[in-house]
Amino acid sequence: MTGPAAAASVRVAPRVWRGVLALLLYLAVFYGVWIFNGIDYPRIGDSADTLWKWYVAPLAAGTVVLVIVVSIYGWWRPALFEKRRRVPPWVWILPGALAVIAILNLIIGDSSRVTPTMWMLLVTGSLLVGFNEEMATRGQLIVALRSRFGELGVWFFSCLLFGLLHLPNTLFGTGLLGLFQVVLTFCAGSVFYLLRRVSGTLIAAMLLHALWDFSTFAANSGLPGAWDLPIGLAGVIVAILIVRREGRVDRAA
């Protein structure tokens, strides 16, 4: 839903700057907690203490910000539920592949170091990161972007900002490897975008995002690192093909 009809269904009219502002407020709080707690990115999953300080606490603070801002905007429904026509069912293959890899990683990867408390914190933090990052970039931001751009621009800018969201990690311990993380998350964002479109709800993307992060923190068999980029690149190609085809159909209509 775009244009006047979309604006009439929400409390505050969607504008790109409002979506970007919500994202920046979230990032300011999240990274503020990281800095306050002395983040060392490569050690986030080392113990229950590091998971609490560097995973759960900043995400919980960020959740509060997003809930407040999206509630003020009144964007919950368009952020959570897709109004555009759904994409072809075969698109389920890409998010399905990510889900299978995440589950296989949990089954065959080594998680012996994870204590019961760490499991609890991993579940909590992963659910929060799924909600936060999806709501910030493929939820409320998509609502904002659709007030100004066609769907190709909506896909591109939502994925771009999702990738750039991870850029500060280069300052917190990833170094130049963080630049690759930006590319990787841009590509993965395309799969989450397609999942929103094919399922009709952002909730599906939130759950897959949570599963993926949970799997990569809890165990590592090497599968996520080997397959996330190829699947993500496939997501980019499929997203471009689908939204360009939709644009041609819309123009013809």
Rank of each mutant, 00 (worst) to 15 (best):
A22I: 09
L23C: 13
L23D: 03
L23T: 10
L24E: 07
L24T: 12
Y26C: 04
L27P: 00
V29T: 12
V29Q: 06
F30T: 13
Y31H: 07
Y31M: 03
G32D: 13
G32K: 11
I35H: 14
I35P: 08
N37W: 00
I39M: 11
D40T: 06
P42D: 02
R43Y: 05
G45Q: 01
D46E: 15
D46L: 09
D46V: 11
S47G: 10
A48H: 04
L51R: 02
K53V: 00
K53M: 01
W54G: 04
W54I: 04
W54P: 03
Y55H: 11
V56Y: 03
L59C: 04
L59K: 04
A60Q: 07
A61N: 08
G62D: 02
T63H: 09
T63C: 15
V64G: 11
V64H: 07
V65F: 06
L66P: 01
L66H: 02
I68N: 05
V69P: 02
V69K: 07
I72G: 02
I72T: 06
I72H: 10
W75N: 10
W76R: 09
R77P: 00
P78Y: 02
A79I: 06
A79H: 05
L80D: 00
E82I: 07
E82R: 09
K83R: 15
K83C: 08
R84E: 12
V87A: 11
V87E: 09
P89G: 04
P89F: 00
W90H: 07
W92D: 02
W92C: 01
L94W: 06
A97V: 12
L98E: 12
L98K: 03
V100A: 15
I101R: 05
I103R: 14
L104Q: 13
N105E: 14
N105V: 14
L106Q: 14
I107G: 03
I107T: 11
I108S: 08
I108L: 09
I108C: 08
G109K: 03
G109H: 05
D110M: 10
D110L: 10
D110R: 09
R113N: 14
R113M: 13
V114L: 13
T117S: 14
W119F: 15
W119K: 08
W119N: 14
L121T: 05
L121D: 05
L122R: 13
L122C: 13
V123Q: 04
V123Y: 05
T124W: 01
G125H: 07
G125W: 03
L127V: 12
V129L: 01
V129S: 02
G130V: 01
